[in-house]
Design a protein around this nucleic acid. Structure first.
Lengths: 198, 198
DNA sequence: TACCTAACGAAACGAATCGTTCATATAGAT
DNA sequence: ATCTATATGAACGATTCGTTTCGTTAGGTA
């Protein structure tokens, strides 16, 4: 029996038959703050609703699962994925590592790590992560095509594989909290390989 | 008020003032089975206790957290980490990828992925994972020392970095469910690099 | 032999979270 | 003016959490 609906004007109200942007902001802000301050176990639907002063029904209407909420949070904080074009592949790679590590040292790193974690048991998040990774690989293919036009690439390695190695190294450093690595060190080994001579 | 203690003899009982190995086995078996069949969300303390016909107090006594339980499960199913010695570094690396991917395609892969996931919010698991990774790097340093003695290694890449790249690639394929990759393809790019010439 | 101690299964506890449902309000759309 | 869709607080039953208590079992010690 619910009969006491406050009409004091301080709470957000419906703005009609459409999503209230203020409500969306409040919910995602609350979710991000809870994740960063209380950790992944603090990101509960109840806590988000309390902090955002929203109804759980509203949250479940737009983000039916914890995974959907995580993806929305990351989509809100991630910026564009601009790759430097230094004219040389190795320095492009080095710049990428430095840039992404700096980005991840802010809020985004913890959020993205949680998405990877959530993907290990949530098919929806796993698929979204797979797609996101493919997009980032495509970004690299552009850079690699430029490098190939300059004659930098070895002929017997597929560009997709090169991109996968770069991404694997980036994820690894995120997952084990080693975002202080030097991009140049990582770029050198990727570019030159480990064998003496060719 | 608990007053009905079954004494039918079918349940495990205390074997005195020491841990009952049968109880340990039953609990870890139940936990592993739940993780594999019901997924990470199915691995609850209550469910483990029910399936193992054990008291929750017993579980919490030996494995106070979910993370501790995960680590115990993995410790129970992982085998020794023997590295092939083919006389050539690239084929050693290739054999490693094929071996670990085959191993992870069994139960161990899902368990290890869950450990990585749990580490993104559980300091105890994170520390255990970090230590485990260091041990695997040390394994590789032995292999790399052999390769260096054969004159295979480039001088300007630290062996630790080589091992880190190999492990990063292995984790990446586990986390995105790409354990069907060919070890030879991964080994080639690690060994030879991507640049034309040296 | 007679205690002491610790592990064990079972049950129950309060707290927290889950996902859902309900009634009521709000306001755009028709 | 009516219809439709959204936003909200409140409450629900179910589940899990971590802890505690109880009675039982058996090794260790004196």
């Amino acid at each position: 029996m619910s009969q006491n609906i406050k009409t004091d004007g301080t709470s957000r109200r419906s703005i009609g038959a459409r999503q209230n942007p203020d409500t969306e902001s409040a919910i995602l802000d609350a979710a991000l703050d809870l994740l960063l301050t209380k950790g992944p176990k603090g990101l509960t639907m109840d806590a988000v609703a309390r902090k955002a002063k929203a109804g759980k029904a509203t949250i479940y209407r737009w983000w039916p699962t914890r995974g959907a909420l995580l993806l929305a949070i990351y989509g809100r904080i991630k910026g564009p994925h601009a790759h430097a074009d230094t004219g040389q592949l190795e320095t492009d790679i080095s710049a990428f590592f430095d840039h992404v590590f700096a980005f991840w040292q802010g809020d985004a790193g913890r959020v993205f790590a949680q998405i990877i974690a959530q993907a290990q048991g949530d098919a929806e998040v796993a698929e979204a992560l797979r797609q996101y990774r493919c997009d980032r690989i495509d970004d690299w293919l552009v850079v690699l095509k430029r490098a190939d036009a300059r004659g930098e690439l070895s002929n017997d390695i597929a560009p997709e594989q090169i991109a996968e190695v770069i991404i694997a190294l980036a994820w690894q450093h995120l997952l084990i909290d080693r975002l202080d690595a030097k991009g140049a060190d990582l770029a050198r080994i990727v570019a030159s390989g480990i064998l003496k001579g060719r």
